[in-house]
Design a protein around this nucleic acid. Structure first.
Length: 259
DNA sequence: ATGCGTGTTGACTA
DNA sequence: ATAGTCAACACGCA
């Protein structure tokens, strides 16, 4: 589920399913994702009410009346669930039960996700050395940041310490729409190319969020709809290539994306 | 049935 | 500084 657009959608889901309801009880599943003791979660969030959510990149925050924040990172397989069924979803890591017997769960089959308790979003961001949210970064900030980078452009865009929120799939999409090869060194990018990347970060992430909210799939002219080696490039009809960058499957079009 | 490769995450090692 | 490995599970395919 887990890049900025998916988390933005999850935030809206949490606004409806979690906020402004008194938490009567909390239950737990696998322990690995929990970054504090079960007892702590109970002490801080039971008999309290969540009143607001925030997002920073791939992280979702929910503030409780106890003045502490619940922080969720979705890993590769995290999702939110809300239901009135007595049976909890499979792989529920932490579940908040309400008075009317409904419950809200953070579900994470592969257990790469994490759940923290934090004092504030700002403090969490600082402690975890997270960069600015990909949708809040201005063109000037972006250009200043990129000026200091020398690595390949995909690696830089995916680095959460530099910009928070862009993952494997949307990095490929942003570079595809910017007509830039994922291995091109940031130091070799022209001003025009940097501007194009910044514009496409905003464009792709906003559009993707809107599509997810509406339950629509990605447009056919997006690379995201063609993440398959040998598939036809929606631009030039050439063959989509797959290479590995930092261990991640990277899809791109050799014809459209030049080094 | 059985086993293998793959994948939207990040942290760590060399 | 970049590449490789790992973590844990579901799924598709041979």
């Amino acid at each position: 589920m887990p890049e900025l657009p998916e988390i933005a959608h999850a935030k809206k889901f949490a606004d409806k399913a979690l906020l402004n309801k008194k938490v009567r009880k909390i239950s737990f599943g696998a322990a690995k994702p929990l970054q504090a003791a079960q007892k702590k979660f109970k002490e801080i969030f039971e008999d309290q009410t969540f009143t607001e959510t925030q997002q920073l990149g791939k992280y979702l925050f929910a503030k409780s009346d106890s003045n502490k924040w619940l922080v969720l990172h979705f890993g590769m397989s995290g999702k939110l669930d809300f239901s009135a069924q007595p049976k909890l979803p499979k792989h529920a890591i932490i579940t908040f039960h309400f008075k009317d017997d409904t419950h809200f769960s953070f579900v994470c089959p592969r257990k790469f996700g994490k759940v923290w308790i934090a004092d504030s979003v700002e403090k969490f961001q600082k402690e975890h050395e997270l960069g600015p949210d990909a949708l809040s970064i201005s063109k000037k900030e972006f250009l200043d940041l990129m000026e200091k980078q020398s690595a390949g452009v995909k690696s830089v865009l995916m680095d959460q310490h530099k910009i928070a929120g862009i993952g494997n799939v949307y990095t490929d999409e942003i570079l595809f729409q910017s007509h830039i090869h994922p291995k091109k060194k940031v130091s070799n990018l022209s001003k025009t190319e940097l501007n194009s990347i910044h514009r496409n970060i905003t464009k792709v992430l906003k559009k993707a969020t809107q599509l997810i909210d509406e339950g629509e799939k990605s447009p056919d002219n997006w690379l995201k709809s063609h993440r398959d080696e040998g598939d036809a490039c929606p631009n030039c009809k050439g063959k989509i290539k797959m290479i590995k960058i930092g261990g991640r499957s990277t899809y791109f079009c050799e014809g459209c994306q030049k080094l």
